[in-house]
């Protein structure tokens, strides 16, 4: 088992309840769930790799490919939808040349959609890394993206 995974695992007990918290910690550390990580978790919790893939693929949070340097999340909650969130996403897909859930070839941006960021009164919102940008327009978003390398 690779060393860093072990330090994550050892913070948790071996109860099956801990599976999701472990997956969350692994993703926080590495940005995604690698096949190796799944092997390590499987041994530690004594549950099959299949079960782990079954559980992890059920939840939208987990990803299995390496993320980009910056994550761009377009909110498609109701309020954002009504105020044009889908157009922002479409423009990003076109501009970055990737589909939602993918990473650009140069690994600069990973594009995702989220169901709701809970800032509905400031819609439409886009989250770039940890910062939330409110009342976004296509034009402002294009400008904003230039600030990320």
């Amino acid at each position: 088992m690779p060393e860093p995974i072990r330090t994550i695992l050892e913070k948790h007990s071996r109860e099956p309840d801990e599976l999701i918290p472990i997956l969350q910690d692994v993703q926080k550390e590495y940005g995604y769930i690698s096949a190796e990580s799944v092997k390590g978790i499987s041994k530690y919790l004594r549950i099959s790799e299949n079960t782990i893939y079954g559980v992890s693929s059920f939840y939208a949070q987990f990803r299995f490919t390496e993320p980009g340097r910056h994550s761009v999340k377009v909110c498609l909650g109701t309020a954002c939808h009504v105020r044009g969130g889908a157009t922002l996403l479409e423009m990003l897909e076109r501009g970055l040349g990737v589909h939602c859930g993918e990473t650009t070839e140069d690994k600069r941006f990973g594009l995702e959609r989220v169901a709701c960021l809970g800032c509905c009164a400031l819609s439409p919102v886009v989250q770039i890394d940890k910062e939330i940008f409110s009342r976004m327009t296509v034009n402002r978003l294009t400008e904003q993206l230039k600030e990320y390398e």
Binding site: G77, A79, A115, C116, C120
Partner: peptide, 8 residues
């Protein structure tokens, strides 16, 4: 687990 989009 406030999941409804548009609710906060």
């Amino acid at each position: 687990d406030e999941g409804d989009p548009g609710a906060f």
